[in-house]
Design a protein around this nucleic acid. Structure first.
Lengths: 167, 167
DNA sequence: CGCATCATGTAAGCTGTTACATGATTAT
DNA sequence: ATAATCATGTAACAGCTTACATGATGCG
């Protein structure tokens, strides 16, 4: 049930409407913890019912800005520090990689090449983001995460290239 | 709906019972595409109904060994080569990393240290597997995957150590 | 004989996706 | 005007987890 804590975490950064949260999930968490508005709105309702968040402001178009309550802040900290993380992951690309040895050489090459193109494209996006942050000169904790992404992509990229060479 | 194709892929490697598949998911796919027997048995039933797998042998204790049909082999190849991969992933550790900047320094350090310990432990397991494969001297396509895992873990490990230094 | 392992299934509940539905405000 | 964007919700369905349930076979 990490959606709940993802929302608490985003609200700790700044009070937001469900709409704001939806956008943040899309731009910052899309590759880590995707969530759509149809999940977010009901979850905000449950969190409010549980006393972990509250409406701090009502704006135009019936928008409701939520913020954390003290109980919400406690719960977020408890989860981050005390709960044993769920390390399981589900990643279709890994599954595909696991199965590609079954394919004849030609097919395998085309699958690996497609993956390589995708990883390189992702890298380019991350590098652009890094450069933006650097230019802006802000001390963004997000920069480190972007950097991790770039490094991981580099390793995967190199591995895929090697596999292509050998296939 | 990758479970279906994961099963087809494993059956392409070798005919298996639901029980065999469950073990393979546990040992080889646990970190990529977890699945438990309560999902696997019904899915085998559906795949049989769709004509993609068939019972090739009946053993003691009512065990049924399934193998791919020609249609199953076609579907597996089609999926691997022609279907655009679903690149989405869901990874709680990434979410936690994203949120740790919210924590006071002490808490953040303990969270990072816990992650680092976990990654190093995973690395050790993978290195042991690599050594085993090397000793056995078999030409295992799985070896390359293990190697990828080791390299990715190295990068993450180094990143976590840096973050710890800076926190 | 008793325990571990092999072997297969079902059911309830939770989580997540896709589609449906509606309406207000702002910019062109 | 009208299109884009802001803004919030619900419903149906698919997928996954946890727990329940049962029985056969092999080993010590």
């Amino acid at each position: 049930m990490s959606l709940r804590h993802a929302i608490l975490g985003l609200l700790a950064r700044q009070p937001s409407t469900g709409y704001d949260l939806t956008r943040t999930f899309d731009v910052s968490l899309a590759t880590t913890w995707p969530a759509s508005h149809s999940q977010i709105y009901p979850e905000l309702g449950k969190l409010e019912g549980a006393g972990l968040v509250e409406v701090v402001e009502r704006g135009p178009r019936g928008s409701k800005t939520y913020g954390l309550t003290d109980a919400g802040r406690d719960e977020l900290r408890r989860w981050l520090v005390e709960d044993e993380p769920d390390r399981s992951q589900r990643n279709e690309s890994g599954l595909r990689l696991f199965l590609t040895p079954l394919l004849p050489s030609q097919d395998r090459r085309s699958v690996l090449a497609r993956d390589l193109a995708h990883v390189e494209q992702q890298s380019a996006i991350l590098v652009a983001i890094r450069d933006q942050i650097e230019e802006a000169g802000r001390d963004d904790p997000f920069a480190a995460q972007v950097d991790l992404g770039i490094r991981v992509n580099e390793v995967i990229s190199a591995w895929l290239a090697e596999q292509l060479d050998r296939t």
